[in-house]
Amino acid sequence: MSDAAPAVVGRTAGSTTAHATTRAVTRHEAAPYASPYLAGVGIGLVLLLSFVLMGRGLGASGAFSSVVTAAVNGAAPTHAANNGFYARYLGDGAGSPLQDWLVFEIIGVVIGGLLSAALAGRIRWTTERGPAITNNHRLVNAFIGGAVMGIGARLARGCTSGLGLTGGATLSVGSWLFVIAAFAGAYAAAPFLRKAWR
């Protein structure tokens, strides 16, 4: 994995213990990731705390909608007000669409991710990609994937956080339908994207 393979300073060619050698001479070695079960229980407790404190769960894609709505509203306020989608995020128009719970939560996600990665030595200016494609190809794929997800998440009114986790835990029918459909879509697309990842 790329998390254990930065800046290698010299590898003994043909050695049967190449892997061990590589690890030993790697500078700034990143700590291994936590067990996904433990990290999952951690996120579950954060989600539960959110229910207890706020009466609502976690989310992510809604913050993107607020940012886009704020930009559209800044550039063309009448256009935004006349659009049923932007109007949802404009609310009563008293404050900026950026004064939104999910926007603040996502600012926290950025800080928390940064803190965790910094303490584990995992901050790295790099591009995560499969070995068979170039960095630029990966960046184009990421942008297109993001755009497609943005459309899907808005149509479904949520993503893997707001529907998957929050709706999953509150037993929302639509959320479970979304998660099943999302994994079906991903597994259907994966064979065509093999070159990008393997």
Partner: peptide, 29 residues
């Protein structure tokens, strides 16, 4: 708060989202 259900948009939106997820390799969060 229980996320509201919209059966057809969530099924279609989920499929679209999944294709984007496999292409981009990350979800919004």
């Amino acid at each position: 708060y229980v996320p509201e259900t919209f059966v057809a948009p969530q099924l279609v939106g989920g499929l679209i989202f999944g294709v984007g997820f496999a292409t981009g390799g990350l979800c919004p969060g």
